[in-house]
């Protein structure tokens, strides 16, 4: 095959890379289901920002 812009080794590297990224994305999605991130309590961490209000009083 003649060398074109679409036959550089870096292009094949990119295809490989996108394929691996896709596999990783699927894996991480399944993993996040397993780890409970899609359950009711999965988003609890974000309320930590406000925890400070409960145990600190700055204004007398």
């Amino acid at each position: 095959m003649p060398a074109t812009d679409y036959t550089y080794p870096s292009v094949y590297f990119a295809y490989l890379f996108f394929f691996l990224s896709f596999l990783l994305a699927v894996y991480f999605f399944i993993r996040s289901r397993k780890d409970g991130y899609w359950e009711d309590k999965g988003e609890d961490v974000k309320f930590q920002v406000f925890q400070d209000d409960d145990n600190t009083r700055r204004t007398p």
Binding site: F28, R31, S32, D35, G36, Y37, V45
Partner: peptide
Amino acid sequence: MFKKADNN
């Protein structure tokens, strides 16, 4: 893995 990175 996620949980671990989140908690540890």
